[in-house]
Design a protein around this nucleic acid. Structure first.
Lengths: 193, 193
DNA sequence: CATCCGGATTGACCTAGGTCAACCCGGATC
DNA sequence: GATCCGGGTTGACCTAGGTCAATCCGGATG
Protein backbone atom coordinates (compact mmCIF):
# COMPACT_ATOMS: atom_id res chain seq x y z
CA UNK A 1 0.00 0.00 0.00
CA UNK A 2 1.43 3.38 -0.93
CA UNK A 3 1.55 6.45 1.27
CA UNK A 4 -1.52 8.11 -0.21
CA UNK A 5 -3.62 5.00 0.19
CA UNK A 6 -2.41 4.69 3.77
CA UNK A 7 -3.35 8.20 4.79
CA UNK A 8 -6.73 7.97 3.08
CA UNK A 9 -7.45 4.79 4.93
CA UNK A 10 -6.43 6.48 8.15
CA UNK A 11 -8.79 9.38 7.49
CA UNK A 12 -11.60 7.05 6.58
CA UNK A 13 -11.37 5.47 10.02
CA UNK A 14 -12.84 8.68 11.39
CA UNK A 15 -14.78 10.46 8.67
CA UNK A 16 -16.07 9.57 5.23
CA UNK A 17 -15.26 11.74 2.27
CA UNK A 18 -15.90 11.46 -1.44
CA UNK A 19 -13.34 10.65 -4.08
CA UNK A 20 -13.13 14.27 -5.09
CA UNK A 21 -12.57 15.37 -1.54
CA UNK A 22 -9.88 12.74 -1.19
CA UNK A 23 -8.11 14.10 -4.23
CA UNK A 24 -8.33 17.63 -2.86
CA UNK A 25 -6.97 16.52 0.50
CA UNK A 26 -4.05 14.73 -1.13
CA UNK A 27 -3.28 17.81 -3.22
CA UNK A 28 -2.50 19.71 -0.01
CA UNK A 29 0.19 17.28 1.06
CA UNK A 30 3.81 17.28 0.04
CA UNK A 31 5.74 14.09 0.31
CA UNK A 32 9.24 14.00 1.63
CA UNK A 33 11.69 11.28 2.54
CA UNK A 34 14.26 11.20 5.28
CA UNK A 35 17.07 8.82 5.87
CA UNK A 36 17.91 7.30 9.20
CA UNK A 37 19.20 9.95 11.66
CA UNK A 38 18.00 12.83 9.57
CA UNK A 39 16.08 15.56 11.40
CA UNK A 40 12.56 16.51 10.48
CA UNK A 41 12.68 19.28 13.06
CA UNK A 42 15.26 20.80 15.36
CA UNK A 43 15.08 22.38 18.76
CA UNK A 44 14.59 26.13 18.53
CA UNK A 45 12.72 26.20 15.26
CA UNK A 46 8.99 26.66 14.93
CA UNK A 47 7.07 23.57 14.03
CA UNK A 48 4.50 24.60 11.48
CA UNK A 49 3.32 21.35 10.04
CA UNK A 50 1.72 18.05 10.76
CA UNK A 51 3.78 15.18 9.37
CA UNK A 52 2.24 11.84 8.57
CA UNK A 53 4.57 8.84 8.54
CA UNK A 54 3.89 6.50 5.65
CA UNK A 55 6.84 4.17 6.11
CA UNK A 56 9.63 4.02 8.63
CA UNK A 57 9.69 5.41 12.14
CA UNK A 58 10.44 8.66 13.88
CA UNK A 59 11.15 9.81 17.43
CA UNK A 60 10.65 13.18 19.07
CA UNK A 61 12.80 14.00 22.05
CA UNK A 62 14.39 16.75 24.02
CA UNK A 63 17.91 17.21 25.25
CA UNK A 64 18.23 18.29 28.86
CA UNK A 65 20.91 20.51 30.44
CA UNK A 66 23.32 17.62 30.66
CA UNK A 67 22.70 16.66 27.05
CA UNK A 68 20.74 13.55 27.90
CA UNK A 69 18.00 12.56 25.52
CA UNK A 70 14.41 12.06 26.68
CA UNK A 71 12.08 10.54 24.13
CA UNK A 72 8.59 12.01 24.14
CA UNK A 73 7.07 10.19 21.18
CA UNK A 74 7.79 7.25 18.98
CA UNK A 75 5.79 7.47 15.77
CA UNK A 76 5.70 4.46 13.43
CA UNK A 77 3.99 4.33 10.05
CA UNK A 78 0.35 5.44 9.99
CA UNK A 79 0.89 8.12 12.68
CA UNK A 80 1.21 11.87 12.74
CA UNK A 81 4.15 13.61 14.42
CA UNK A 82 4.10 17.22 15.49
CA UNK A 83 5.70 19.29 18.16
CA UNK A 84 2.32 20.35 19.50
CA UNK A 85 3.68 22.82 22.00
CA UNK A 86 5.46 24.68 19.24
CA UNK A 87 2.73 24.23 16.65
CA UNK A 88 -0.20 25.22 18.82
CA UNK A 89 1.38 28.15 20.62
CA UNK A 90 3.46 29.24 17.66
CA UNK A 91 6.68 29.42 19.58
CA UNK A 92 10.11 27.88 19.08
CA UNK A 93 10.03 24.22 20.03
CA UNK A 94 12.39 22.41 22.34
CA UNK A 95 12.00 19.08 20.62
CA UNK A 96 14.04 17.33 18.02
CA UNK A 97 12.21 15.09 15.61
CA UNK A 98 14.48 12.53 14.03
CA UNK A 99 14.04 9.56 11.75
CA UNK A 100 15.18 6.35 13.39
CA UNK A 101 14.82 4.44 10.12
CA UNK A 102 14.62 5.62 6.56
CA UNK A 103 11.16 7.04 6.47
CA UNK A 104 8.78 8.66 4.05
CA UNK A 105 6.27 11.25 5.04
CA UNK A 106 3.42 13.40 3.86
CA UNK A 107 3.53 16.95 5.14
CA UNK A 108 0.52 19.14 5.85
CA UNK A 109 1.55 22.68 6.67
CA UNK A 110 -0.38 24.83 9.10
CA UNK A 111 -1.68 27.02 6.27
CA UNK A 112 -2.79 24.06 4.20
CA UNK A 113 -4.46 22.58 7.22
CA UNK A 114 -6.41 25.78 7.80
CA UNK A 115 -7.33 25.79 4.14
CA UNK A 116 -8.48 22.21 4.53
CA UNK A 117 -10.68 23.15 7.48
CA UNK A 118 -12.23 25.94 5.43
CA UNK A 119 -12.95 23.79 2.41
CA UNK A 120 -13.77 20.53 4.17
CA UNK A 121 -14.92 21.18 7.71
CA UNK A 122 -15.30 17.46 8.32
CA UNK A 123 -11.59 17.47 8.87
CA UNK A 124 -12.16 19.40 12.07
CA UNK A 125 -13.78 16.21 13.29
CA UNK A 126 -10.93 14.06 12.05
CA UNK A 127 -8.36 16.07 13.94
CA UNK A 128 -10.59 16.47 16.96
CA UNK A 129 -10.99 12.74 17.38
CA UNK A 130 -7.35 12.08 16.64
CA UNK A 131 -6.24 14.60 19.23
CA UNK A 132 -8.70 13.46 21.87
CA UNK A 133 -7.25 9.98 21.58
CA UNK A 134 -3.69 11.18 21.66
CA UNK A 135 -4.48 13.35 24.63
CA UNK A 136 -6.08 10.48 26.53
CA UNK A 137 -2.95 8.40 25.99
CA UNK A 138 -0.75 11.28 27.06
CA UNK A 139 -2.74 11.69 30.28
CA UNK A 140 -2.28 8.01 30.93
CA UNK A 141 1.42 8.41 30.41
CA UNK A 142 1.57 11.17 33.00
CA UNK A 143 -0.21 9.08 35.61
CA UNK A 144 2.00 6.13 34.76
CA UNK A 145 5.14 8.13 35.34
CA UNK A 146 3.79 9.56 38.56
CA UNK A 147 2.55 6.32 40.06
CA UNK A 148 4.39 3.35 38.60
CA UNK A 149 7.84 1.91 39.09
CA UNK A 150 10.22 1.73 36.13
CA UNK A 151 9.64 -2.02 35.82
CA UNK A 152 5.87 -1.57 35.70
CA UNK A 153 6.17 1.16 33.09
CA UNK A 154 8.27 -1.19 31.01
CA UNK A 155 5.60 -3.89 31.31
CA UNK A 156 3.01 -1.53 29.94
CA UNK A 157 5.34 -0.35 27.25
CA UNK A 158 5.86 -3.88 26.03
CA UNK A 159 2.16 -4.47 25.74
CA UNK A 160 1.29 -1.17 24.13
CA UNK A 161 4.22 -1.08 21.71
CA UNK A 162 4.64 -4.79 21.07
CA UNK A 163 4.69 -4.30 17.29
CA UNK A 164 7.59 -1.88 17.21
CA UNK A 165 9.45 -2.72 20.42
CA UNK A 166 11.55 -5.21 18.46
CA UNK A 167 12.98 -2.58 16.16
CA UNK A 168 14.04 -0.20 18.90
CA UNK A 169 17.36 -0.19 20.71
CA UNK A 170 17.41 -0.60 24.46
CA UNK A 171 18.64 2.94 24.81
CA UNK A 172 15.55 4.20 23.07
CA UNK A 173 13.17 2.15 25.17
CA UNK A 174 15.00 3.20 28.32
CA UNK A 175 14.73 6.84 27.35
CA UNK A 176 11.05 6.50 26.53
CA UNK A 177 10.11 4.94 29.84
CA UNK A 178 12.35 7.41 31.63
CA UNK A 179 15.38 5.52 32.90
CA UNK A 180 19.09 5.29 32.10
CA UNK A 181 20.36 2.70 29.62
CA UNK A 182 22.54 1.31 32.41
CA UNK A 183 19.64 0.92 34.77
CA UNK A 184 17.45 -0.49 32.04
CA UNK A 185 20.01 -3.15 31.27
CA UNK A 186 20.11 -4.21 34.92
CA UNK A 187 16.33 -4.26 35.00
CA UNK A 188 16.23 -6.67 32.06
CA UNK A 189 18.81 -8.87 33.70
CA UNK A 190 16.77 -9.01 36.88
CA UNK A 191 13.67 -9.96 34.88
CA UNK A 192 15.38 -12.70 32.89
CA UNK A 193 16.41 -14.49 36.05
CA UNK B 1 -20.86 36.69 35.57
CA UNK B 2 -23.09 33.64 35.78
CA UNK B 3 -22.17 30.18 34.56
CA UNK B 4 -23.96 30.40 31.25
CA UNK B 5 -22.34 33.70 30.39
CA UNK B 6 -18.96 32.24 31.33
CA UNK B 7 -19.24 29.20 29.12
CA UNK B 8 -20.53 31.25 26.19
CA UNK B 9 -17.60 33.59 26.52
CA UNK B 10 -15.31 30.60 26.60
CA UNK B 11 -16.83 29.21 23.42
CA UNK B 12 -16.66 32.58 21.71
CA UNK B 13 -12.90 32.60 22.22
CA UNK B 14 -12.72 29.90 19.57
CA UNK B 15 -15.78 30.05 17.35
CA UNK B 16 -18.57 32.51 16.74
CA UNK B 17 -22.18 31.41 16.96
CA UNK B 18 -25.49 33.24 16.78
CA UNK B 19 -27.80 33.93 19.70
CA UNK B 20 -30.06 31.09 18.65
CA UNK B 21 -27.18 28.68 18.50
CA UNK B 22 -26.04 29.84 21.91
CA UNK B 23 -29.48 29.10 23.31
CA UNK B 24 -29.48 25.67 21.74
CA UNK B 25 -26.04 24.92 23.11
CA UNK B 26 -27.07 25.99 26.60
CA UNK B 27 -30.16 23.81 26.38
CA UNK B 28 -27.94 20.75 26.15
CA UNK B 29 -26.21 21.45 29.44
CA UNK B 30 -27.39 20.50 32.89
CA UNK B 31 -26.08 22.44 35.82
CA UNK B 32 -25.01 20.77 38.98
CA UNK B 33 -23.32 21.87 42.17
CA UNK B 34 -20.92 20.02 44.36
CA UNK B 35 -19.65 20.81 47.77
CA UNK B 36 -16.05 20.61 48.85
CA UNK B 37 -14.81 16.99 48.89
CA UNK B 38 -17.73 15.70 46.88
CA UNK B 39 -16.91 13.41 43.97
CA UNK B 40 -17.89 14.21 40.42
CA UNK B 41 -16.52 10.87 39.31
CA UNK B 42 -15.10 7.77 40.99
CA UNK B 43 -12.50 5.27 39.97
CA UNK B 44 -14.06 2.32 38.20
CA UNK B 45 -17.00 4.12 36.72
CA UNK B 46 -17.26 5.20 33.10
CA UNK B 47 -16.85 8.87 32.49
CA UNK B 48 -19.43 9.86 29.95
CA UNK B 49 -19.54 13.59 30.14
CA UNK B 50 -17.57 16.75 29.79
CA UNK B 51 -17.94 18.96 32.85
CA UNK B 52 -17.38 22.68 32.69
CA UNK B 53 -16.46 24.42 35.94
CA UNK B 54 -18.25 27.71 36.38
CA UNK B 55 -17.14 28.47 39.92
CA UNK B 56 -14.90 26.66 42.38
CA UNK B 57 -12.15 24.18 41.64
CA UNK B 58 -11.75 20.50 41.01
CA UNK B 59 -8.91 17.98 40.95
CA UNK B 60 -8.58 14.68 39.14
CA UNK B 61 -6.24 12.10 40.60
CA UNK B 62 -5.52 8.45 40.92
CA UNK B 63 -4.75 6.31 43.92
CA UNK B 64 -1.80 3.97 43.54
CA UNK B 65 -1.31 0.53 45.09
CA UNK B 66 -0.20 2.05 48.36
CA UNK B 67 -3.17 4.39 48.41
CA UNK B 68 -1.12 7.47 47.65
CA UNK B 69 -2.80 10.19 45.67
CA UNK B 70 -1.35 11.50 42.41
CA UNK B 71 -3.01 14.58 41.00
CA UNK B 72 -3.34 14.61 37.23
CA UNK B 73 -5.34 17.78 36.71
CA UNK B 74 -6.35 20.84 38.63
CA UNK B 75 -9.30 22.54 36.97
CA UNK B 76 -10.36 25.99 38.16
CA UNK B 77 -13.36 27.95 36.88
CA UNK B 78 -13.61 28.34 33.10
CA UNK B 79 -12.13 24.89 32.42
CA UNK B 80 -13.46 21.53 31.39
CA UNK B 81 -12.70 18.35 33.34
CA UNK B 82 -13.01 14.89 31.90
CA UNK B 83 -11.38 11.56 32.43
CA UNK B 84 -10.32 11.40 28.79
CA UNK B 85 -8.97 7.89 28.96
CA UNK B 86 -12.32 6.62 30.16
CA UNK B 87 -14.40 8.95 28.00
CA UNK B 88 -12.57 8.39 24.76
CA UNK B 89 -12.06 4.66 25.01
CA UNK B 90 -15.34 4.02 26.81
CA UNK B 91 -13.80 2.00 29.56
CA UNK B 92 -13.91 2.24 33.35
CA UNK B 93 -11.69 5.07 34.52
CA UNK B 94 -9.03 4.94 37.17
CA UNK B 95 -9.38 8.55 38.14
CA UNK B 96 -11.28 10.25 40.88
CA UNK B 97 -12.59 13.71 40.19
CA UNK B 98 -13.27 15.64 43.36
CA UNK B 99 -14.27 19.18 44.21
CA UNK B 100 -11.64 20.92 46.31
CA UNK B 101 -13.96 23.85 46.92
CA UNK B 102 -17.70 24.20 46.60
CA UNK B 103 -18.10 24.28 42.88
CA UNK B 104 -20.80 24.65 40.30
CA UNK B 105 -20.66 22.99 36.94
CA UNK B 106 -22.38 22.61 33.62
CA UNK B 107 -22.49 19.07 32.34
CA UNK B 108 -22.45 18.03 28.69
CA UNK B 109 -23.05 14.32 28.29
CA UNK B 110 -21.46 12.30 25.54
CA UNK B 111 -24.81 11.90 23.75
CA UNK B 112 -25.60 15.60 23.96
CA UNK B 113 -22.15 16.40 22.70
CA UNK B 114 -22.67 14.16 19.69
CA UNK B 115 -26.02 15.79 19.12
CA UNK B 116 -24.28 19.15 19.32
CA UNK B 117 -21.76 18.09 16.69
CA UNK B 118 -24.57 16.99 14.40
CA UNK B 119 -26.56 20.19 14.75
CA UNK B 120 -23.70 22.65 15.04
CA UNK B 121 -20.56 21.23 13.44
CA UNK B 122 -18.62 24.36 14.38
CA UNK B 123 -18.32 22.79 17.79
CA UNK B 124 -16.03 20.21 16.28
CA UNK B 125 -13.64 23.07 15.83
CA UNK B 126 -14.18 24.33 19.35
CA UNK B 127 -13.30 20.98 20.86
CA UNK B 128 -10.51 20.38 18.40
CA UNK B 129 -8.73 23.57 19.34
CA UNK B 130 -9.39 23.06 23.01
CA UNK B 131 -7.96 19.56 22.92
CA UNK B 132 -4.96 20.49 20.83
CA UNK B 133 -4.03 23.05 23.44
CA UNK B 134 -4.61 20.71 26.32
CA UNK B 135 -2.58 18.05 24.55
CA UNK B 136 0.31 20.42 23.95
CA UNK B 137 0.38 21.25 27.64
CA UNK B 138 0.21 17.59 28.57
CA UNK B 139 3.17 16.80 26.30
CA UNK B 140 5.09 19.55 27.99
CA UNK B 141 4.24 18.05 31.34
CA UNK B 142 5.63 14.69 30.26
CA UNK B 143 8.92 16.19 29.15
CA UNK B 144 9.07 18.23 32.33
CA UNK B 145 8.68 15.16 34.50
CA UNK B 146 11.25 13.26 32.46
CA UNK B 147 13.90 15.95 32.34
CA UNK B 148 13.51 18.36 35.24
CA UNK B 149 14.28 18.16 38.91
CA UNK B 150 11.47 18.54 41.43
CA UNK B 151 12.58 22.07 42.25
CA UNK B 152 12.53 23.10 38.61
CA UNK B 153 9.09 21.58 38.13
CA UNK B 154 7.88 23.57 41.07
CA UNK B 155 9.29 26.77 39.54
CA UNK B 156 7.31 26.17 36.40
CA UNK B 157 4.25 25.27 38.36
CA UNK B 158 4.35 28.55 40.23
CA UNK B 159 4.53 30.53 37.03
CA UNK B 160 1.87 28.60 35.18
CA UNK B 161 -0.58 28.31 38.06
CA UNK B 162 0.15 31.58 39.84
CA UNK B 163 -3.53 32.49 40.01
CA UNK B 164 -4.66 29.37 41.86
CA UNK B 165 -1.47 28.27 43.61
CA UNK B 166 -2.52 30.34 46.62
CA UNK B 167 -5.69 28.39 47.20
CA UNK B 168 -4.05 24.96 47.09
CA UNK B 169 -2.55 23.09 50.00
CA UNK B 170 1.09 22.10 49.89
CA UNK B 171 0.04 18.48 49.73
CA UNK B 172 -1.87 19.16 46.54
CA UNK B 173 0.97 21.03 44.92
CA UNK B 174 3.40 18.32 45.98
CA UNK B 175 1.20 15.64 44.50
CA UNK B 176 0.77 17.58 41.28
CA UNK B 177 4.47 18.06 40.70
CA UNK B 178 5.10 14.49 41.72
CA UNK B 179 6.79 14.55 45.13
CA UNK B 180 5.91 13.70 48.71
CA UNK B 181 4.49 16.36 51.03
CA UNK B 182 7.45 15.75 53.32
CA UNK B 183 9.96 16.29 50.58
CA UNK B 184 8.07 19.27 49.26
CA UNK B 185 8.18 20.93 52.65
CA UNK B 186 11.94 20.47 52.85
CA UNK B 187 12.26 21.86 49.35
CA UNK B 188 10.43 25.02 50.34
CA UNK B 189 12.59 25.40 53.40
CA UNK B 190 15.72 25.11 51.31
CA UNK B 191 14.39 27.77 48.92
CA UNK B 192 13.43 30.23 51.65
CA UNK B 193 16.95 30.26 52.99
C1' DC C 1 -11.56 26.82 77.27
C1' DA C 2 -10.55 22.08 75.65
C1' DT C 3 -10.55 19.14 71.92
C1' DC C 4 -9.93 17.79 67.52
C1' DC C 5 -8.37 17.74 62.96
C1' DG C 6 -6.09 18.58 58.83
C1' DG C 7 -2.25 20.39 57.32
C1' DA C 8 2.99 21.32 57.77
C1' DT C 9 7.53 20.28 59.70
C1' DT C 10 11.26 17.61 61.12
C1' DG C 11 14.53 13.81 62.27
C1' DA C 12 16.54 9.35 61.25
C1' DC C 13 16.89 6.23 58.02
C1' DC C 14 16.15 3.88 53.32
C1' DT C 15 16.03 2.80 48.26
C1' DA C 16 15.15 3.29 43.35
C1' DG C 17 17.51 4.69 40.06
C1' DG C 18 21.68 7.69 38.48
C1' DT C 19 26.79 8.21 37.38
C1' DC C 20 31.08 7.17 35.45
C1' DA C 21 34.20 4.57 33.60
C1' DA C 22 35.78 0.15 32.01
C1' DC C 23 34.84 -3.60 29.16
C1' DC C 24 32.49 -6.59 25.84
C1' DC C 25 30.53 -7.89 21.48
C1' DG C 26 28.98 -8.16 16.72
C1' DG C 27 28.95 -6.40 12.51
C1' DA C 28 30.54 -2.80 9.13
C1' DT C 29 34.61 -0.83 6.89
C1' DC C 30 39.23 -0.68 4.95
C1' DG D 1 42.20 -9.75 9.63
C1' DA D 2 42.67 -5.24 12.12
C1' DT D 3 40.06 -1.40 13.29
C1' DC D 4 36.23 1.02 14.51
C1' DC D 5 31.82 1.92 16.26
C1' DG D 6 27.48 1.76 18.24
C1' DG D 7 25.22 -0.64 21.19
C1' DG D 8 24.95 -3.38 25.79
C1' DT D 9 26.85 -4.90 30.39
C1' DT D 10 28.90 -4.47 34.70
C1' DG D 11 31.09 -2.80 39.04
C1' DA D 12 31.61 0.62 42.63
C1' DC D 13 29.72 4.31 44.32
C1' DC D 14 26.28 8.30 44.83
C1' DT D 15 22.00 11.11 45.47
C1' DA D 16 17.30 12.78 44.85
C1' DG D 17 13.61 11.89 46.82
C1' DG D 18 10.80 8.38 49.73
C1' DT D 19 9.26 6.45 54.41
C1' DC D 20 7.56 6.52 58.95
C1' DA D 21 6.58 8.34 62.92
C1' DA D 22 6.66 12.17 66.10
C1' DT D 23 5.60 16.93 66.78
C1' DC D 24 3.62 21.33 65.87
C1' DC D 25 0.27 24.71 64.69
C1' DG D 26 -3.96 27.17 63.68
C1' DG D 27 -8.44 27.33 63.26
C1' DA D 28 -13.06 24.97 63.66
C1' DT D 29 -16.31 22.68 66.93
C1' DG D 30 -18.61 21.80 71.05
Amino acid sequence: MDGQALILRNVSNYISITGEEQAYFLSLLQSRNYHRKEYLQREGSNCNNFTFITTGCVKSYLLDQKGDEHILTIAPADWWVVDYMSFVFEQPGNLFIEAIENTSTLILTKEKREELFRKLPQFERYFRVLTERAFAVSQQRVTDILSLTAAARFEKFQQRYAHIAGSLTQQQIASFIGVTPAFFSRMLKAKRK
